[in-house]
Simulated scan of single mutants.
Amino acid sequence: SRTNPFRAEVLENINLNGRGSNKETRHIELSLEGSGLTYEPGDSLGVYPENDPELVELLLKEMNWDPEEIVTLNKQGDVRPLKEALISHYEITVLTKPLLEQAAQLSGSDELRELLAPGNEGNVKAYLEGRDLLDLVRDYGPFSVSAQEFVSILRKMPARLYSIASSLSANPDEVHVTIGAVRYDAHGRERKGVCSILCAERLQPGDTLPVYVQHNQNFKLPNDPETPIIMVGPGTGVAPFRSFMQEREETGAEGKAWMFFGDQHFVTDFLYQTEWQNWIKDGVLTKMDVAFSRDTEEKV
């Protein structure tokens, strides 16, 4: 469940993009053995990630905090060393207006209060865009409060939801996800997606990830296996349709299936290419149309 996630062991972590691609898309296979978790094609996997330890180090240094100081996380009285709490418990990469308002009460910064003054909504919105907690403490510090007082204004790290890319009947005791690595520059610093870069840079086979299954009643294969389906999944949007095809292959469904897929380059970015070609060859997939936007003069 969301409140009590299962720690799933990583079996595989593969980059699906070819050498020279502008993208990095990870195919991750996790073991559900002993979890009791079940899912259907169309469901999502909730993943609780960890923050980048480098970002946490910069934050600790900026605030001059002792990484080993014990802080209380919640009303239940759970405690952790500060560094561990910042890595695994608190959201530190997203700023919100309520967070700025609480920070303004802890900071001696008149500039932060001015930013939050009525009529400045546009400036607040612009400030929140692409900035994180490190920016906030650098821009509006010093915060002469205890680490405990400061972390008390932070939100708990939310789970990330990813479409499941496998069928349980085709892969008993396993779940697969397809995750595109998010990296970009903003405000003079390189930014990284919390969960996607954990998966791309730090997650090895044998490691574990806390996960739960989010069922989705509104996104399912038709009950009648004869019903034809049309699937549109550009980029990582291909993930749930891989689970649809695995399921239909496993159950011997007879309905026609037509897939639309698009990405940047045919050679490097055709995700799960051999699987799609095999499904076409075996008749599980009736038809596939693809578009690769950077392979032609005109964007398609």
Rank of each mutant, 00 (worst) to 15 (best):
L112K: 06
L116P: 04
S167C: 08
G206W: 14
I153F: 06
C195T: 02
F219Y: 15
T178V: 14
V213N: 07
F150Y: 08
G130F: 07
V175A: 10
E190F: 00
L203T: 08
G180T: 14
P234Y: 01
F244R: 03
G235A: 07
F241A: 05
G206K: 10
L115N: 02
C199A: 14
L133C: 14
V151L: 01
I153Y: 01
G206N: 15
R242C: 11
H176G: 03
A170E: 11
S243H: 01
P172G: 06
P228T: 11
R160W: 07
E190G: 09
H215I: 10
R160S: 09
L134F: 11
A239I: 05
F143Y: 12
S196K: 06
Y212E: 05
P210T: 01
A117M: 06
L154T: 00
P142F: 08
L168M: 13
A239L: 10
G233A: 09
L203F: 06
E149V: 00
L198M: 14
S163Y: 06
T208P: 14
P158C: 11
T236I: 04
L133I: 12
T208W: 09
M157F: 05
Y127R: 02
G235W: 01
E114Y: 03
P222D: 11
A165Y: 10
E201G: 04
A165F: 07
G233L: 09
F150M: 11
S167A: 12
I153T: 01
R160E: 02
P240F: 02
Q204T: 09
A147Q: 07
A126W: 08
V238K: 00
E226D: 13
F241G: 07
L116H: 04
P118G: 08
Y140N: 02
P225T: 09
Y212L: 07
Q214N: 12
E190Q: 13
N216H: 12
N218C: 15
P142T: 13
F219E: 10
V211M: 01
Y140G: 09
Y127K: 02
D135P: 02
R202F: 04
I197S: 13
C195L: 06
S146T: 10
E129T: 14
V124L: 03
R160F: 12
